[in-house]
Design a protein around this nucleic acid. Structure first.
Lengths: 223, 223
DNA sequence: GACCGGGTGTTACCTCGGGTAACATCGAGG
DNA sequence: CCTCGATGTTACCCGAGGTAACACCCGGTC
């Protein structure tokens, strides 16, 4: 899984350039300059432009490489015949593991430099858009939502993607807990734990004896 | 958080410049150049830099203005004494209404140009980070999650923010349904409807999952 | 051998946007 | 009068994306 599907055959020079770009991005993040990439490859800018057209082209090519791997993994996770809760956890875990393994690369996938005002207000990066579509498809084929399926599956695909994205970024940055616990927390949210939890008394509650709740992180309860 | 309240008095010129910047951003989006803003204000760049230090400063100042309003509304929605489901819907609706009313402005708030590698990998824009913290606080004070409260409230704050952000962007871009229905869809997700829904029978005869191609966004049917 | 075409490479340049230095102005007030 | 502080200007630097024009090598072909 650490070696994404990249076809070194066909266009070896191009692959070589992409490898260089990869190294620079891994080192400097998504903001890496064309000059830096060219230097890393031991050449000069015009060659890059001959191969990739413009910066977007390079980034796109670079992105596709890794997207393939990530998407493949997520897709696999989505089509595994697990209990739904386990499946959701598995998918989230897969994603978190991916961004954990190579943060810079996945930052590139998930937070690309805009630079492309043509697509208007598309907030989700292409890779994430594909993941969202994958989730949409999974929901459509696996969950019975009646007449609401078309809308809900699409909306939820985006929503879940954005949710895991934002939470994943935060988790990666702060490391507030081990990965499995984070997976648990997100799955719990999707499982309606927020909706099901008891309400606290409205403000100014005296330090009453600990209102112990049975809800534990590793023991999710269905309603 | 230093002086969030943007008082039109005190620094009238500054406010005037911000007004100009506002107009440009409203017209050209978050990518507006300093030159353009200066021109709109009828002056030249150095004055902008004297007032705001650098571009980030300008954007920050511009952001704080609108953030104040948005945050205020969200905060109000979060502290209203509604049934939890109604409250969640109210908050989401508030946010969607905001981004609907002035897309360009809220695009600025929600998808600022990065340009700031110092802050490392902070994915959520400042305004959204504040909203996330607001949600966190609301969960902490209103929901009984037992010992998991500290982690869950923070994680969920980010997660919910990211969820509504991504879904809101998609909704704003596609307009697949009226706002109330979108609110409904998102609240349903948080209410565990995905978890609770019945499963569909496994697919009949899946064709070999070999061909992977980036099809168009609207694929009505796949044979 | 001469000729050609394509892939690889270079230097030098353009444009544009963020950011700055240095100079000019004007009104208030000792 | 002369300084102080705010407002304003022109002209410049720098870095990054992007391009033009030229040079080289190598394999094929007449």
């Amino acid at each position: 899984m650490s070696t994404p599907a990249a076809a070194p055959a066909g266009e070896p020079r191009r692959e070589q350039l992409l490898n260089a770009a990869d190294r620079v991005v891994q080192r400097e993040g998504p903001g890496a300059s064309m000059n830096a990439i060219a230097a890393e490859a031991g050449i000069t800018k015009p060659i890059l432009y001959r191969h990739f057209g413009d910066r977007n082209g390079l980034i796109a090519a670079l992105t596709e490489r890794h997207t393939a791997g990530l998407l493949e993994t997520v897709r696999a996770a989505l089509s595994e015949p697990l209990e739904r809760r386990d499946q959701v956890e598995h998918v989230i875990d897969t994603y978190l593991a991916a961004i954990e393994s190579r943060p810079q690369v996945y930052r590139l996938l998930t937070h690309p430099e805009p630079g492309d005002p043509t697509g208007a207000g598309n907030a989700l990066a292409p890779a994430l858009k594909q993941i969202a579509e994958e989730i949409t498809r999974a929901v459509q084929t696996q969950v019975d939502l009646g007449a609401d399926t078309p809308l809900l599956s699409e909306a939820w695909g985006r929503a879940i993607t954005g949710m895991v994205l934002a939470a994943g970024d935060w988790w990666l940055d702060q490391r507030p807990c081990p990965r499995p616990r984070m997976v648990q927390a997100l799955a719990d949210l999707l499982w309606g734990r927020l909706a099901a939890a008891a309400a606290l008394p409205p403000v100014v509650a005296p330090p009453a004896p600990g209102p112990e709740d049975a809800a534990g992180p590793t023991t999710p309860e269905e309603t």
